[in-house]
Write a protein that binds this DNA or RNA. Structure first.
Lengths: 222, 222
DNA sequence: ATATTTAATATTGTATACAATATGTAAAAG
DNA sequence: CTTTTACATATTGTATACAATATTAAATAT
């Protein structure tokens, strides 16, 4: 197996993406090409190309001659993104559920118990979020809808910042842990319709929690 | 009003996009940076940046050190894209329908009659597709879901090539013209659920027509 | 003749340099 | 004093030049 040779543009994109997702670069903050270039020891060309990629991912807003800024999602935008996620993730689940094997379900359950352990231990760093994503991903894994998957992944990444913030401020995921168990059980018994409806509700609930928090923060900033 | 100063990157992106959508550049064809640059009288930098943008739009596939190619959609991908469109457009309609004014509906009807005239005249060029898009867009216009709109627009652009091909080969839109009338009527009478279901069926039907054609062509190519 | 290695060519990736545009500041006009 | 204009600075956009990688063709070995 040959060494993967990553291009500078890719490395720069990863670096900047990480800065945005961790909040090191905050929403609305301008991203100066020259500054990023010298910081990362590259020329401005790969920085520009990375910024263009990040724009496609929705993490950056690019305006001709004015430069790039980290995107700042309004409450309304968060709202819409989560609605989209609910719609698309339910679509994925509906196509996946019939093809989930015992093995898949067992793996999902394993991830779930790890998640529960982390939550009980009062974990507030990113592990909780990761496990949560992986649990969901496992349930969608047999959908065979690559483009839909890509979309969902994009929106997840996009809302990740806010979910992390929420985990941090609320001291963990607020969604009741038994919701995941219920969802898993509905998948195991192949109750497709119910599982999808439940999933939608689950995502919309998460949205409402985050939105409340966000509105509070927006309010405090005045 | 100041003169709009478009950047070379934007102009190049438009040029290449047009070439792909009209079929002048076919799916799978490689896009040489140097060739495009000299053809369009710019350096390779704006060409590269344009290609990155087009990749985000799904029209181009970019591989490090290997270059870009126009994307070639398989029957399976077309299938998935149209399913996504059905899902997302129904979502838009469901949010828009209650807020459609008499004015909106009248405008939609006007577009529709133009479309019918074009179809009866046996129009096979892009006007038919344009009017069709505009009719649908009008119905979604009050959804106030900008990100969903953007997604739908992207997928429409992406499938445009195939719709055009279909119109050309089948001698026009094959969807029964009365379907549009039915849809409009359901919107006028605010039968949200029925309208959305009907719309989904409408889009899936179009998909099946195109897929049949596509599979035939793929078959002929051997 | 086929497969493998090596050199030549083509093509992409990135740095540097310069041009165009936008932003900020000081002088001039009202 | 406020507004406008002209200038200086900062920042982005693009061309050119060079470096790195991939592809092709030729040479060698099996």
């Amino acid at each position: 197996m040959a060494i993967e040779h990553k291009t500078r543009t890719q490395l720069v994109a990863e670096a900047i993406r990480e800065k945005i997702l961790t909040g090191e670069i905050k929403g609305g903050e301008p991203l100066r090409q020259a500054a990023l270039a010298s910081e990362l020891n590259v020329s401005r060309i790969p920085v520009r190309e990375a910024l263009l990629q990040l724009e496609a991912e929705g993490l950056v807003h690019f305006e001709a001659h004015k430069g790039a800024t980290a995107t700042q999602l309004s409450a309304a935008q968060i709202d819409e993104i989560f609605d989209l996620r609910a719609l698309l993730e339910a679509e994925l689940l509906s196509h996946s559920i019939a093809h989930l094997s015992e093995q898949d379900l067992a793996e999902a359950e394993h991830i779930l118990s790890q998640l529960e352990t982390a939550m009980n231990a009062g974990d507030t760093h990113s592990a909780t979020g990761d496990l949560n994503s992986r649990f969901h991903a496992k349930l969608y894994s047999r959908a065979e809808r690559p483009q839909t998957r890509e979309l969902v992944d994009m929106y997840c990444k996009n809302s990740e910042r806010y979910v992390r913030m929420h985990i941090l401020l609320a001291g963990g995921l607020t969604t009741a842990p038994e919701e995941h168990r219920t969802l898993l059980e509905l998948c195991r018994t192949k109750k497709t319709r119910k599982a999808c409806d439940f999933l939608k509700k689950h995502i919309v609930e998460a949205k409402n929690d985050i939105k409340k928090l966000l509105i509070k923060i927006e309010h405090e900033q005045r």
